[in-house]
């Protein structure tokens, strides 16, 4: 169980998050949506200590973690893996070495065992043939799958996806969607997905929260979002250029 309570965050004079509160239930596929720059990525980075909130609380499995230091964040980052927007693989390492890094650091495995395990993890995302290739040699969709394999190596309970289908072709995007849904259904992993991709949102989300001007505008199921008469939400989910949304 994960809960954000009254989270506030400013960068200089600009307040990005203003009293954001919501819960995420165990095992659900939870989407965070909203216009660009509304603070979706900023919000999920608070959960793993990559950013610190100005005020508010973050509860993870009964523990308040918003004031944890770098050392205390270690177990949190093992429990909550993150797939970044641009895959962020290390160019100087092969795909297998990229996936092996968290195994060596989080699980203290030796290099040989970590590499063998990494190759197995790459097979799960159908990338075993590319284990010895370097990230610049791969396409965006392939890099994304390797990044997902790297995130899953530590067997996390929560996986945070920051715009996982951005820059992917429609086929690769749907494959990533399927992978995220399978994580929830087969492994019981809680997925928190930041996305603009309407196809993803309405095909795999259990629940959605929409942020607008730093606040929570609505939380609900995809069906509830479709049925709402809120003009801002309707403009967003229908992708209309004109409407009440103030960008």
């Amino acid at each position: 169980m994960l809960a954000f309570k009254n989270i506030k965050k400013s960068f200089g004079p600009k307040q990005v998050l203003n009293d954001v509160s919501f819960d995420v239930k165990a095992g659900e596929c939870f989407f965070i949506i909203g216009a660009s720059g509304v603070g979706k990525s900023v919000l999920i980075k608070h959960l793993v200590g990559l950013l610190a909130c100005d005020s508010g609380e973050i509860w993870l499995d009964g523990e308040e973690i918003s004031r944890f230091d770098e050392q205390q964040m270690g177990p949190v980052r093992k429990k909550c893996a993150m797939v970044f927007q641009h895959a962020t693989l290390f160019d100087s390492m092969t795909c297998a070495e990229n996936v092996a890094l968290p195994l060596r650091k989080h699980k203290d495995m030796n290099a040989k065992d970590a590499l063998a395990e990494a190759k197995k993890r790459l097979a799960v995302v159908h990338m075993q043939a590319f284990a010895d290739r370097y990230p610049p040699e791969l396409g965006d969709g392939m890099r994304k799958r390797v990044a997902i394999a790297r995130a899953l190596t530590v067997d996390p309970t929560y996986v945070l996806f920051d715009e996982p289908t951005t820059s992917l072709d429609p086929v690769s995007a749907r494959r990533v969607d399927t992978l995220i849904r399978e994580l929830c259904d087969k492994l019981g992993v809680t997925s928190i997905v930041v996305s603009h991709d309407l196809s993803s949102i309405f095909s795999i989300a259990d629940r959605i929260v929409m942020l607008y001007k730093g606040k929570v505008l609505k939380i609900g199921t995809p069906a509830e979002f479709k049925a709402t008469d809120n003009g801002i939400i309707q403009q967003f989910i229908n992708g209309r250029a004109e409407g009440p949304m103030d960008l």
Binding site: R77, M82, P102
Partner: peptide
């Protein structure tokens, strides 16, 4: 700026 340092921290590599 490409979040690779954040990815390092997520991998428990300081």
């Amino acid at each position: 700026v490409t979040e690779q340092v954040d990815a390092l921290r997520m991998s428990a590599a300081d």
